[in-house]
C-alpha cells in the first residue's frame, strides 16, 4: 500500500491534484482523527505536523524505515575500505620501517578505520534519507497549509475517485475536532 502511495505521490508531483484537508490544533486530536479516518476505510494521503507526533506512524500504518540497514552497510564498507587501504599501503605499496613497528600494525590502524566507519555510515545515511524523502536544495515543499511548520496539524485526503463523499468526510473531520476543513489543489 505504501509503495502505491509513493507512486501516486510521484505522479502528483507532476500534475497538481485536489486534496481534502483538515486542520487540527493539537496532536491528540490529529492522532484520533487519523485513527478514525483509517477505520472509516478512507485512505489518508498524508499527515503534516510541526513536529514529530509519536504514534502517528503506527496509526497511519507506516512501516519502519530501513535507514539503519543502510547505515550498517555503509559503515561496514567505510571501515573495511579504511582498514584495507592502510594494510595495502604499509604492506604492498610502500613497506617502510617506521618506529620499528611491524608492517601489519593493525592496532594502530583501528582509530582511522573507526573514524571512517562513522563518517561513511553517517554521510550515506543522510544521503539516503534525503533521497528517500525527496529533500534537497531546490526541492519544492508540498504545503497544504502555511502554518504547518508553525502550529497546525494537517490531515490530507486525496480526492482521486468519485466514490469518496466529500461532504461526509468533511463533516467527519469537523466532528473529530478540525478547526478548518477545505479543499485544496496542490
Amino acid at each position: 500500500m505504501l509503495v502505491e502511495k509513493q507512486k501516486e505521490l510521484m505522479i502528483s508531483m507532476k500534475n497538481r491534484k485536489k486534496y481534502l484537508i483538515g486542520i487540527f490544533q493539537d496532536e491528540d486530536m490529529i492522532l484520533n482523527a487519523v485513527k478514525s479516518v483509517c477505520k472509516a476505510g478512507i485512505s489518508i494521503f498524508d499527515v503534516f505536523s510541526p513536529y514529530a507526533v509519536h504514534g502517528l506512524d503506527e496509526a497511519m500504518g507506516i512501516k519502519r524505515s530501513r535507514l539503519p540497514i543502510v547505515t550498517f552497510l555503509a559503515g561496514l564498507t567505510g571501515g573495511l575500505l579504511a582498514m584495507l587501504l592502510q594494510l595495502w599501503v604499509f604492506n604492498i605499496d610502500w613497506p617502510i620501517i617506521v618506529g620499528g613497528k611491524p608492517f601489519n600494525a593493525v592496532p594502530a590502524f583501528i582509530p582511522i578505520a573507526f573514524e571512517l566507519t562513522v563518517l561513511v555510515g553517517g554521510l550515506v545515511t543522510v544521503a539516503a534519507f534525503l533521497f528517500r524523502s525527496r529533500l534537497g536544495p531546490g526541492a519544492t515543499p508540498k504545503l497544504f497549509d502555511s502554518e504547518v511548520t508553525n502550529k497546525n496539524f494537517v490531515l490530507a485526503i486525496e480526492q482521486k475517485d468519485a466514490s469518496l463523499d466529500i461532504n461526509k468526510v468533511k463533516e467527519m473531520l469537523i466532528t473529530l475536532g478540525a478547526t478548518e476543513v477545505k479543499e485544496k489543489e496542490v
Binding site: 617502510i96 620501517i97 617506521v98 618506529g99 620499528g100 594502530a108
Partner: peptide, 14 residues
C-alpha cells in the same frame, strides 16, 4: 624510534 611513529607524513623514517 619514538620520533618516527608519530610523524603524520612519514618525514622521518628508518
Amino acid at each position: 624510534a619514538p620520533c618516527e611513529s608519530v610523524c603524520p607524513v612519514l618525514a622521518t623514517v628508518h
